[in-house]
Design a binder for these strands. Structure first.
Length: 510
RNA sequence: GGCCCCUUCGUCUAUCGGUUAGGACGCCAGGUUUUCAUCCUGGAAAGAGGAGUUCGAUUCUCCUAGGGGCUGCCA
């Protein structure tokens, strides 16, 4: 049973940007494939031509790429089972729908959309629950089951629009084993005769999905829980097609939920709650509205992926930081939780911080240099690296190094108001002035040397750090808090430090 | 409404019948720090409720409640 090569697919619909829930589904597919030396495919499910959004397909591909989950096969990469976009496979599906009609498992239905609307409306008015086209109501509808054969033939010959619906049996228990949920069972009386083939000549998800998974030799279907209710339908379809022997194993993933309130995480929650829901920034092609992305917000792809992996799965150990390779090794689909998980943005930030700290100063320098250039801040790699070492511990994002330590690159242009009022007085000015001359005499302007000089000054004046420190910091950095002043000054250098102190004395009268 | 799935600290979760119910995020307190951040130490914080099975249930079964999903010629 386990000789079959693992082949999984991520099959998004290009109706908009892929959100983080979708990315996690892709991730679990990817991890499962890689740990079994299998294939990870990307198939674009664009059977609903009315909902296509320009740029969405490209966005999906770019998102997977950013996350480090390149498909082995699929749209944009090719492979032996292409094409990998359903609209390009359109010609394939009709024959399979016909096969089901011929075997008595499907039928033509001629009810128009308006007919159905009317019936549903009437049912609603009559106070009955949602009307369904099922093994009871189909008797009252216009289809090849109720119409005389000649009339059906005539309608088809006349080119009258029709759909093909599956014909579900009455009162049959459909059971299947889900890798995550165990046995799931549904009675066909609670299911409806889903449309398999639409009047526009395109298959619906249900048909295209089953046909393609079969044709592409998919071994495991790992998808979101929203598909669980239609899984029994799919099970039945595999049976009716005679493909039960190679039917993929199913795994339905728990959903990602809103951090507050109820419901699944949706595209709107990001703006409402102040965090991105998309991996990459997205510009709506129609409205021009911009939705922020994790990448643009400064998250490392590894941190984003690590966070997503832990939303619904854990290794059972206390390790939380996992590289993609470690995830591939440790992932176990049977350890995926059943219940939905609320997204926690604080935890995401924490993950990013962990990754930031794990990076070497060299790596961070490479990331920082272009950001500095963008802001027209000139600096050498060597100098930047020193600043990184200094402020790294207080940063969550690479950009924080600039916002936290801007004064390391540029002399302050403004001074913290609160510190100014509380700590800047004639005494503080006096100390700064005195320190200027002390510093001028220093030949060794290292952190320890500055500290020694500073300490002896305090001793001499018989005063404490609290009397001198804040004004000193304000003069040099413009801030009321920050890293060690001695290290700041050592990195800035003697000349710059003294010049800033002099500037403060000029600009900040008491 | 119907059907299906789910239910341990605020959040993500560990526990595969016997534990002082563990960890992480966040929060609080103390320590370190001239300051802030970091870091260290400590703390508060959970088995939805009710039956049953069992010597013993967070763990197994059932019921109730709550949450989620689906209920389209959308995926």
């Amino acid at each position: 049973m386990s000789e079959r090569k693992v082949r999984v697919r991520f099959a998004p619909s290009p109706t908009g940007p892929l959100h983080m829930g979708g990315v996690r589904t892709a991730l679990y597919n990817y991890l499962f494939a890689k740990q079994h030396n299998g294939d990870f495919l990307l198939r674009i499910e664009d059977t609903d031509q009315t909902r296509l959004v320009p740029g969405a397909e490209e966005y999906i591909i770019n998102s997977l790429k950013w996350c480090g989950m390149s498909p082995d096969e699929g749209q944009s990469v090719g492979g032996d089972y292409g094409p990998y976009k359903q609209s390009e496979r359109k010609h394939l599906y009709k024959q399979y729908a016909d096969q089901l009609i011929n075997s008595g498992h499907a039928y033509y239905a001629f009810d128009t959309a308006e007919d159905l609307d009317r019936v549903r409306l009437m049912a609603k008015k009559a106070g009955t629950a949602n009307w369904q086209y099922n093994n009871v109501t189909r008797e009252q509808m216009k289809n090849s089951l109720t119409l005389p054969a000649e009339e059906t033939a005539a309608k088809l010959a006349a080119g009258e629009p029709y759909v093909i619906r599956i014909k579900l049996p009455r009162n049959e228990e459909v059971k299947f084993e889900d890798m995550i949920r165990g046995w799931v069972s549904v009675n066909t009386n609670n299911m409806d005769d889903k449309v398999l083939f639409k009047s526009d000549g395109m298959p619906t998800y249900h048909l295209a999905n089953i046909v393609d998974d079969h044709l592409m030799n998919i071994s495991h279907v790992i998808r979101g829980e929203e598909w669980l209710p239609s899984a029994p339908l799919h099970i039945l379809m595999y049976r009716y097609f005679g493909w039960e022997g190679t039917r993929p194993t199913f795994a339905h993933l728990p959903l990602l939920l809103k951090p507050d309130g109820n419901g699944k995480l949706s595209k709107r929650d990001g703006d409402r709650l102040g965090f991105p829901v998309f991996p990459l920034q997205w510009t709506d092609p129609e409205t021009g509205a911009i939705s922020s992305g994790y990448k643009e917000q400064g998250y490392f792809a590894e941190a984003f992926v690590n966070m997503l992996a832990f939303l619904g799965w854990n290794p059972g150990t206390e390790q939380e930081i996992f590289s993609m390779n470690e995830l591939i090794e440790s992932f176990n689909i049977e350890r995926v939780n059943k219940a939905g998980a609320k997204y926690d943005h604080d935890k995401t930030k924490w993950f990013n911080q962990q990754y930031l700290r794990a990076k070497s100063n060299e790596e961070l320098t490479e990331l920082l240099m272009p950001m500095l250039a963008e802001q027209n801040i000139s600096s050498t790699k060597e100098y930047s690296s020193q600043v990184i070492e200094l402020v790294k511990e207080r940063a969550y994002f690479v950009a924080d190094i600039i916002t936290e330590g801007l004064y390391m690159f540029e002399a302050p242009t403004e001074y913290d108001e609160k510190t100014l009022q509380k700590k800047w007085n004639s005494e503080a000015r006096e100390h700064v002035s005195n320190l200027i001359s002390r510093f001028s005499d220093l030949s060794d302007f290292s952190s320890s040397s500055i500290e020694a000089c500073f300490s002896s000054y305090l001793a001499e004046k018989e005063t404490g750090f609290g009397k001198v420190g804040p004004g000193f910091r304000l003069a040099v950095t413009g801030k009321g808090m920050g890293p060690s002043m001695f290290e700041i000054c050592a990195i800035l250098g003697k000349e710059e430090t003294i010049s800033r102190m002099q500037m403060a004395l000029e600009k900040l009268p008491v």
